[in-house]
Each structure stands twice: as structure tokens, then as C-alpha cells.
Simulated scan of single mutants.
Amino acid sequence: MFHRSLGALILGLALLLAGVAAPAASAAADPNPYGDPNLVSMFDGKTLDGWTPHKAGGWTVKNDAIHGTGTAGRGWIYYNKAQAGDFRWIFNVRQVKGDHAPTVLIWGTTDPIRDALSAIQFQPPNGGHWDYRPGHNNGGGSLFTKYDHTKWDVKKWSQCEIVATQATGVARMACCPLKSDAKTCKAVEVLKFTDKTAGQVGPLAIQIHNSGIQDEYKSLYLESPVVTKPGDFITTG
């Protein structure tokens, strides 16, 4: 009786240990910190898998972030696992070195590839902008609305969210500075773009605006199509 009980105990402990160890070996990535189950991680923190650069050597992974080296001139790196017309895009950004604000590109095209992917450019976190579409290539004038806010230091990490609706041609950006090791912050709207003719399915891209600039991006998440609060922010509440 003693031997049978001891054997059962040993077997039970073995099964318990196996049950505990197995999930650890195949643990899923940490969930995003925004409480939106529809967000998908765009960056594994270690490699550029899923991203297409304009030139070899222009981009690498450094400081657990997508790092623009500034050595390959002006150019971009775009997410190649999906293109998006309606989307929510959240990321953290800072500038290590440079003389122009960080820039991201939306609603552009990779066929054909032109300067800045012929896209609409947002400049996080403070809300500068440009319109690179053929026939435009200008600041965009009244198509952009820039909202007053405290100007944040681009050399420090900021969180930004861009939410876009293809059918209306409305894209909005909300940003905020991240304090110390905080994962999130409460954002405020800094920029809005409106042009019904601009909305299209296209790549989401990061751009190095000039040679010598070093910008970094991490904690990149995408939701497309947008299920949670379409057309509105989730980081401003």
C-alpha cells in the first residue's frame, strides 16, 4: 500500500511539474499594454523580420528598437506583413541624433516606389507634416489641422497613436511623453489630416528624413481593420 501511494505521489508530482513547465517553454509574447485585444505586434524587438528597408545598412535593431543608422541617406522602412487603409497604429519614438523631426508615412504606395512612398507624412510627437502625393509635394495647407500642446523633447521617448479611416480620408495622431520606465501615457491629439481622395490601402512606414539622422521606434502595434473604437483613440482616455 505504501509503495503504491508513494508511486502515485511521484507520478502526480511529475505530471504537475510537466504541466507547469510546458507553458513556460512555449509562453506567448506579453500582451500589448493598451487593453485592446485586436492589436498585433509589428516588431519582435530583436530582428527586422516583417520590415523592408530602402537600402541595406540604413536600418538595424539597437537598444531593443528599430534604429535608423543615418548612413544610407534619406529613406524608409515599411511593414511588409500587411498594408492598411483603416488602421490604428501605436508606437514609441525618440531621436538619438538629428536635425529634423522623426517622420512616419501612411496611405502611400510601393508600386511604383517614389520619394517617401508618395505618402502622407506625420511627424511624431509634435505634429509636423507633409503631403508627398504626386501633384502635391507640399506642406498640405488646410488639409492638416495642428493642435496646440506643450512641445515635447524628441530626444526622449514618446508614445504616439495614429488612427485612420480610409473612406473619409481622415487620419489623426495623438501623442504624449513617456516618463521614466512607464509603458504608456495619456495622449493628446496633436494632428489631423482630412482629404477624402487620400485614403487608400498602403504601407505603414518609418522614414529617416535626412542623412545623419538616427531615430528609434519600439513597441509597435497595428490594428487593421479597426474593431475597437473605429476612428477614435484608445490612448487619450
Rank of each mutant, 00 (worst) to 15 (best):
K151S: 10
A198K: 12
K97Y: 01
V163T: 14
S41C: 12
H136Y: 12
D30F: 07
P112E: 13
L178H: 06
G58W: 00
W76S: 15
S118L: 00
N137W: 13
C185T: 06
S211W: 04
H54T: 08
L105H: 10
A27L: 15
N38C: 03
D64Y: 04
E189G: 04
I162W: 02
H209W: 12
G141A: 11
K62Y: 01
Y79P: 11
N38V: 01
Q214M: 12
A24W: 11
G202Q: 08
A21M: 13
L6F: 10
S41H: 11
F122W: 05
P124C: 03
Y147I: 14
P230N: 08
Y78H: 15
P112F: 13
W157Y: 02
Y217K: 00
I162E: 03
D195N: 15
Y221M: 07
G108P: 13
G98S: 04
I90A: 01
S118G: 15
A205R: 09
M1V: 10
K229D: 08
M1A: 14
G108M: 05
P124F: 01
A101T: 14
M173E: 03
T235M: 06
A101V: 05
A21F: 12
Q166V: 10
R133C: 06
N92K: 15
T235A: 08
I106C: 03
Q123A: 06
C185R: 08
D86R: 13
D215K: 12
G7I: 00
G135S: 10
K229F: 03
G98K: 11
W130Y: 15
W157L: 11
G73E: 06
S180E: 13
M42W: 06
Q159C: 04
Q214A: 10
M1L: 12
Y79A: 08
W89Q: 02
Y147G: 09
S118F: 05
V226W: 00
W107D: 07
T110A: 09
Q214K: 14
K156D: 04
T184E: 03
L143P: 00
P203G: 07
V104D: 03
L191P: 01
A24N: 11
D195R: 06
G85L: 09
T165A: 02
I213D: 09
I234R: 04
P230T: 10
S224A: 13
L9S: 11
